[in-house]
């Protein structure tokens, strides 16, 4: 116990204001509920939504069945928190919700949900695209592509995602 305290004593406390990582796929119901919750925020006039879906890529003769996501969770939460705060201020957003899966997500299921809201449409398209790119570039998350024959390969991000 003493050792654990010693180890983390000069790390920033895990003051996570929002939890961005969740286990398993992001359900369509969760997304629908999230949209629904905004009906009371009547200063908003424009939303954009990005949904990242697991592709059934064919790798030689094998198809991707699922991606198993893992993360350096404390740092990932910290980095998403940071990029979210920056985007809200830069694009003058009313709301910005970010959810990313951990663990197993099957092909066809959603692993990333970015929901951007502002009074007018001008900024929401750019903001959404910018936030998705930053998530891919700055957040320590990894994906193991599970293939039909039971083997796996480690996913690499391409610029066209």
């Amino acid at each position: 116990m003493e050792n654990d305290q010693l180890k983390t004593q000069h790390l920033k406390p895990n003051k996570v204001l929002k939890k961005f990582l969740q286990h398993g796929p992001i359900s369509p119901q969760f997304i629908a509920d999230s949209i629904s919750k905004h009906s009371s925020k009547t200063n908003i006039g424009a939303h954009t939504i990005f949904l990242g879906q697991v592709r059934k890529d064919k790798i030689e003769t094998n198809e991707v069945q699922a991606i198993e996501y893992s993360a350096y969770e404390e740092m990932a939460e910290q980095e998403i928190h940071k990029l979210r705060e920056e985007a809200i201020s830069k694009y003058q957003l009313s709301c910005l919700h970010i959810h990313h899966s951990l663990g197993n997500v099957n092909a066809g299921e959603i692993s990333l949900f970015v929901f951007v809201s502002a009074p007018h449409r001008t900024n929401v398209f750019t903001a959404c695209s910018d936030v998705v790119e930053q998530i891919k570039n700055k957040v320590p998350i990894w994906g193991k592509e599970i293939l039909a024959n039971g083997t796996h390969i480690w996913k690499t991000n391409k610029t066209n995602g």
Partner: peptide, 9 residues
């Protein structure tokens, strides 16, 4: 922490 290239999204 040793961090290989990220692959989120």
């Amino acid at each position: 922490a040793l961090l290989p290239p990220y692959a989120g999204g």
